[in-house]
């Protein structure tokens, strides 16, 4: 197999890509608030925002995983096939 054949470029369907982008956006909010709370543990407004964002994040992850297979390792995958290795890897996705 030549090196060209080994390279994969995956174009995700629009609906799937849009959901992935939303997960990336909300996931970033969660990361940013987590770091902020590490040095501002008594900021109750930030904690409330963190909890809201984290709940939203997990809702989106569950929705994505129901439709397209596992995004987070160690999640249940209720289908008959092992979709973890079948879906494109992060470095193969064609971002747009």
């Amino acid at each position: 197999m030549s090196h060209r054949q080994m390279h994969r470029q995956a174009q995700l369907p629009k609906e799937q890509y849009d959901l992935l982008r939303e997960i990336m956006q909300v996931g970033f909010v969660v990361v940013e608030l987590q770091l902020y709370l590490d040095t501002h543990p008594n900021d109750r407004q930030a904690l409330r925002l963190y909890n809201e964002s984290a709940m939203c994040y997990h809702r989106l992850i569950m929705e994505y995983q129901r439709k397209y297979g596992m995004l987070m390792a160690h999640s249940p995958d209720g289908t008959e096939e092992w979709r973890w290795i079948g879906s494109p890897w992060p470095w193969e996705i064609n971002y747009r």
């Binding site: 992935l20 990336m24 996931g27 990361v31 995004l71 973890w84 890897w89 996705i93 971002y95």
Partner: peptide, 13 residues
């Protein structure tokens, strides 16, 4: 650690 199969930020090339 638990791997999430996504980038933190997109890479458009």
């Amino acid at each position: 650690w638990v791997y999430e199969k996504r980038l933190e930020y997109p890479v458009r090339v």
